[in-house]
């Protein structure tokens, strides 16, 4: 609990918004950009993929629509199932973004759960830190692994709330609390948020931020949901700073007993 706000700093850069958004699953770049503006986010993830040869040559690229001057671009390693592919992807991202060092490392375990492959994640994190990258790392909600990734030099640790794209919310708030208790780097819940209350819960637990894609992009009205998420993250953060009342099994009257006239 802290009534005075401390700024969110990731790899030396200060952010006003504690919401990080994705750029996948939108119907168009325009819808993506509108949702980004409505979310108030200052950081947005992108994926690195082969250029489509032959077709749609005149098509604008994502980076022409979302300005790297205005937003922090966070290239991810989504789709990588081993450390070598993830490291290779980060190096391509760094070349693509003119030496940009900030990356979101995610090494996946299997296609059904998209759970992180923690052993490969540890190998990739070590290699990337050694190579000078600022690594924001997607991982399981295991407090020991989270600490280990911090000690290896990751600039932010991003435990899942629930599987990617599942929208199931924060399934294990007690683990997130344990991770937070030991952390000295920003802890950002990445994956699992389904609606605004899930984001608020993550922030009320004391997380430094929330990263989400599907919850906004797959909402019936993504722009309205982006705005809801902005408020949820802000209100969850304020509630955390305010310090919530204790939970009680039984009632506690709000009006005084003294002075009743009956």
């Amino acid at each position: 609990m802290t009534a005075t706000e401390t700024p969110l700093i990731i790899a030396g850069k200060q952010y006003q918004s504690r919401l990080i958004v994705g750029s996948g699953k939108y119907q168009s770049f325009e819808q993506n950009l509108e949702a980004l503006v409505a979310s108030g986010a200052e950081m947005i993830t992108v994926a690195i993929r082969r250029v489509n040869l032959g077709q749609n040559k005149g098509e604008p690229s994502l980076l022409e629509v979302i300005s790297a001057q205005q937003y922090t671009i966070l290239p991810n390693t989504a789709g990588c199932y081993n450390a070598a592919d993830a490291v290779r992807t980060c190096r391509m991202a760094r070349e693509l973004l003119d030496g940009h060092k900030l990356v979101k490392l995610e090494v996946l375990g299997d296609q059904k759960t998209l759970y992180p492959n923690v052993t490969e994640t540890l190998i990739a994190a070590q290699e990337l830190v050694k190579d000078g990258f600022d690594v924001m790392v997607y991982t399981s909600d295991d407090p020991l692994i989270a600490k280990r990734l911090e000690e290896m030099g990751c600039v932010a640790v991003m435990p899942l709330g629930a599987p990617i794209g599942s929208g199931l919310g924060i399934r294990n708030p007690y683990n997130i609390r344990m991770i937070l208790e030991n952390a000295k780097v920003p802890i950002i819940v990445d994956a699992g948020v389904g609606t605004a209350s899930d984001a608020a819960i993550a922030m009320e637990l004391g997380c430094d931020g929330v990263l989400m894609n599907t919850a906004i992009a797959e909402a019936k009205n993504p722009i309205l949901m982006a705005s809801a998420m902005k408020k949820a993250v802000e209100s969850g953060r304020e509630a955390f700073r305010a310090g919530r009342m204790p939970r009680r099994l039984y009632a506690s009257a709000s009006s005084p007993i003294d002075g009743t006239f009956f």
Binding site: V46, V51, S61, I73, A93, N213, A217
Partner: peptide
């Protein structure tokens, strides 16, 4: 990028060209 103009190519080279697309 600074070396694209000078970089020669050879038979059977494997070239990968990537860009940023939407992702989470």
């Amino acid at each position: 990028r600074s070396q694209h103009a000078q970089q020669g190519l050879a038979d059977q080279d494997q070239i990968e060209i990537v860009h940023a697309i939407g992702g989470g």
